[in-house]
Nucleic acid binder design. Sequence first.
DNA 1: TTAATTGCAAACATTTTGCAGGTTC
DNA 2: GAACCTGCAAAATGTTTGCAATTAA
Lengths: 139, 139
Amino acid sequence: MTIMISAQPVEIPGMLEARGISATRQRREIARVLLGKAQHVTAEQLMDELALHGQAISKATVYNTLKLFVDKGLLREVHVDATRTVYDTTTTPHHHFYNADSGQLSDIPLEEVAITALPNPPEGTVSEGVDVIVRIRNR
Amino acid sequence: MTIMISAQPVEIPGMLEARGISATRQRREIARVLLGKAQHVTAEQLMDELALHGQAISKATVYNTLKLFVDKGLLREVHVDATRTVYDTTTTPHHHFYNADSGQLSDIPLEEVAITALPNPPEGTVSEGVDVIVRIRNR
DNA sequence: TTAATTGCAAACATTTTGCAGGTTC
DNA sequence: GAACCTGCAAAATGTTTGCAATTAA
């Protein structure tokens, strides 16, 4: 049996510091689990995942950290379901399929959607971005 | 002072029955407040509005009725904010501006958005529709 | 008169908060 | 050692549920 003590890449603390996030143990752990691969995760799924690896982190800290990572541009929130917030590790602009049957989200690369007409934002406002959600259902 | 007792159009009960909804007092009242004009309303706003007209309806019934109206195609749910469900009285396909500062939603008519490329839905799924949300911010 | 509907209060689920104790620089 | 961070438990929010009383067909 192999015992893995802190098998995290050296890059993680650096990546956090680069965003002005001090790299505490909990934040490194969450970064290791979440970042580095494209995925959509809820707070609960993250807590389960952490617990599975014997790295349980309190609810408060998980929520604090998710919010911090969103503020610092490491994560994006996606709202498709009224009940929970999904955190998306892909922070560059892109779109989503949302499977209404399974609740699953999947990414659509930006270049696969072409929007050739859009109205101007109302007076006094500026556009921050466009989200396209293609609602799908199992056949 | 004018006392208005049940100043609702005759059409409402008919509109409800046409959808297989029996027209109870509460449902007629909610239909009267909501339907017939394009708007975006939360459950709480609806309850406040009803209370304001001396027609308070219990939370359970408001939620039951909103869900019923959605099932029967009189309303659409919109999810832009993690915390609450917004009910949209416009049930035909269209898109939205979402003001992240004020939380305000506004409609974009279908024809003002042109999408000229979209990927095919994943194997085993079919598309149910496309929602475009233009996130805006006060200048 | 039988089934459907309502309303209350309690239950739920997710997220936030207050604060005491720990950690970091 | 000062500021920041964590974790617990409790609070807050929005929504749902169980069930007895009421209303509708």
